[in-house]
């Protein structure tokens, strides 16, 4: 049935395929099965309920009016913020200066910090009584703020934490992209006396576009499923005002212990990100071809 070469290839991919199957495919299948059943974690009756859970999720005003908008706002702000800062840092690091390697290493530190640790750190930094942020503000004669009590300040801290965590990732990839660009167009621009801004906008940015788009697609999909920093910083509060899609699914499945509805919401989220992902991949394709 298979030639020797094909059998060898299958042999090589078998361990990875097995792991993928056991830890990715099987749980998704179990979750999908649960989403059509009355499956409470404390009393899994597993009776068939059809699309009831899906209907409940997609007609839930909290899901439509709070969770989905929050998730997309978070995705856009976090990716845009990390990209802008990452690009800025990559451009700075792309020129030789004394201590460049040290700065480069220090900038990578957030990549080594677990998101939960970063979120705990931020929660204490923005604590209204003990936090360094209010201490600095009060030291400057300004009034300290209860940062985590209002929707948009709490949301801002979540975005800030995510941007802090992911900027080095953008920096690293964009720096690699910058260093792989051909030198000749830049040398020609220098001979012509082109301004720095024109070099950036007409040469660097267009030539770096494929790398940027790939980074944005990967990171946007990843941002959609962010859970840890939000859960640690605000738990989706105050009220439900900073709740993202992953928190919504988690609360249903593991706080309310309704595995059926939690699975349905996870699958709804999965389908949404699938559509977003397809659109983004088409964008990548178009950019790469152009």
């Amino acid at each position: 049935m298979f030639g020797e070469q094909q059998r060898f290839m299958l042999f090589l991919i078998a361990p990875a395929a097995l792991l993928l199957g056991l830890f990715q495919v099987v749980p998704i299948v179990i979750g999908a099965n649960a989403s059509f059943r009355d499956w409470a974690l404390y009393n899994p009756k597993k009776t068939w309920v059809g699309l009831d859970h899906y209907r409940a999720v997609i007609t839930d005003p909290a899901f439509l009016e709070v969770v989905l908008p929050n998730t997309f706002i978070f995705m856009i702000l976090s990716v845009a913020g990390s990209l802008a800062l990452g690009l800025g840092l990559a451009l700075l690091l792309n020129r030789p200066f004394r201590g460049q390697k040290i700065v480069q290493t220090v900038l990578m530190v957030p990549l080594m910090v677990a998101p939960v640790i970063a979120a705990i750190m931020m929660r204490w930094m923005f604590n209204d009584q003990f936090g360094i942020v209010n201490a600095v503000l009060e030291g400057l004669g300004m009034e300290g703020q209860p940062w985590l009590v209002q929707r948009w300040t709490a949301f801002g801290i979540i975005v800030l934490t995510d941007v802090w965590l992911w900027t080095p990732w953008f920096t690293l990839l964009l720096l690699a992209g910058l260093q792989s660009l051909p030198k000749e167009p830049f040398e020609a621009a220098a001979i012509d006396g082109t301004t720095t801004w024109r070099v950036f906008s007409h040469l660097t940015l267009p030539m770096l576009q494929p790398v940027i788009v790939v980074c944005v697609v990967i990171r946007a999909i990843d941002a959609f499923r962010t859970f840890d920093i939000v859960w640690t910083l605000t738990g989706g509060g105050p009220g439900r005002s900073t709740e993202l899609f992953s928190i919504y699914a988690y609360v249903l499945a593991f706080l309310n212990l309704d595995l059926g509805r939690g699975s349905a919401s996870a699958i709804v989220g999965g389908l949404i990100i699938l559509v977003v992902g397809v659109v983004m991949y088409r964008l990548v394709d178009r950019v790469t071809k152009s």
């Binding site: 409470a40 209002q150 105050p238 009220g239 706080l255 309310n256």
Partner: peptide
């Protein structure tokens, strides 16, 4: 009853929204 965590969360979300 089994739904107490869900009730507790709905209660807490509401009063938190009201007080803020």
């Amino acid at each position: 009853f089994a739904n107490w965590p869900a009730v507790h969360k709905a209660f807490n979300d509401t009063v938190t929204k009201a007080v803020t």
